[in-house]
């Protein structure tokens, strides 16, 4: 059996961390060491985590998810490094299933399926339909990318491609690393048998702003052209893009007959445009 380290990046996750760590302790696959990377939380997350036999590493200030991941990869000594988000609960066989996928040498990472626990409110339902973090109920070889919530990577590949990019604070870093791994000629695998439950609860505002953040980092990497005319043009141009995305949401909702999500699809364009404006004024003032 391979020796596996598991790390849990967390930031202000006192509601979730207990259940998450509990599920880690009862895995069917033996875990060599469990690391909890605390990204400068200011609640009692760490006191809860201390009750479990885990190694705790703290950042002195909030540096983002990508930085936490990098810390974990720098600290650990084992070749296989699993990661699980603090707001997720892993199934009993989760790690077993993921480790079984490493059948050949050029497979450098494996990801599992994320299912939502809460999807009764409109916001949660919207998240589970339009922001679902999984690739369906089959094994997919070379999916476009592996979602960062629950993965196993080999340490040498993360070191080889130069660690996670800390410019992406808490979004898009998983896509970025997958693309870089593909570009160095390795394979990734998605296994739907490895299941993880997502405990997150959203409001309409938070779910839309999460999506906006994702798009923001995807397109610009957080860097805009700073000339005023260019910047305003980009803002207006983005509206057309948001509209295009919401059109897809509309079509999907009409097809799946989830009509109660239509108002959020309608709000999407306007809220994203508003967030763009807010972002711009914040930058202009600083």
């Amino acid at each position: 059996m391979e020796r596996v380290s598991l790390y849990i990046p967390c930031y202000n996750a006192k509601e979730y961390i207990n259940e998450c760590l509990h599920s880690v302790m009862v895995q069917s696959y033996k875990i060599d060491e469990v690391l909890v990377i605390d990204d400068g939380s200011d609640d009692n997350t760490i006191e809860i985590a201390k009750r479990y036999p885990v190694k705790i590493i703290r950042h002195d200030k909030n540096r983002g998810l990508a930085a936490s991941r990098n810390t974990a990869f720098r600290v650990t000594k084992n070749e296989f490094v699993a990661s699980l988000d603090a707001d997720c609960v892993a199934g009993h066989n989760w790690l077993q299933q993921l480790m079984e996928c490493f059948v050949s040498d050029d497979i450098m990472g494996v990801g599992g399926k994320l299912v939502e626990r809460h999807n009764l409110t409109v916001a949660d339902k919207w998240r589970s339909t339009h922001m679902s973090q999984q690739w369906g109920n089959q094994i997919v070889e070379n999916p476009p990318f592996l979602f960062g919530s629950n993965t196993v990577f080999k340490k040498k590949v993360i070191e080889g491609v130069g660690f996670y990019n800390e410019k992406f604070r808490s979004n898009y870093e998983d896509v970025d690393i997958s693309i870089r791994i593909y570009n160095s000629g390795f394979r990734l695998i998605y296994n739907s048998e490895a299941e993880v439950e997502h405990l997150r609860k959203d409001t309409i505002k938070s779910v839309l702003s999460t999506y906006w953040h994702w798009l923001h980092y995807k397109h610009m990497g957080g860097n805009y052209n700073n000339k005023i005319s260019r910047r305003i043009a980009a803002m207006l141009g983005n509206i057309a893009e948001y509209f295009e995305i919401s059109e897809d949401f509309f079509q999907e909702d009409l097809r799946e007959k989830t009509y109660k999500l239509l108002p959020i699809d309608f709000l999407f364009t306007f809220y994203c445009a508003w967030l763009d404006l807010k972002q711009y004024t914040r930058q202009a003032l600083l």
Partner: peptide, 10 residues
């Protein structure tokens, strides 16, 4: 809008 978007890209 597309034109503005291209202009925004430089």
């Amino acid at each position: 809008f597309k034109a503005l978007s291209y202009y925004g890209q430089g």
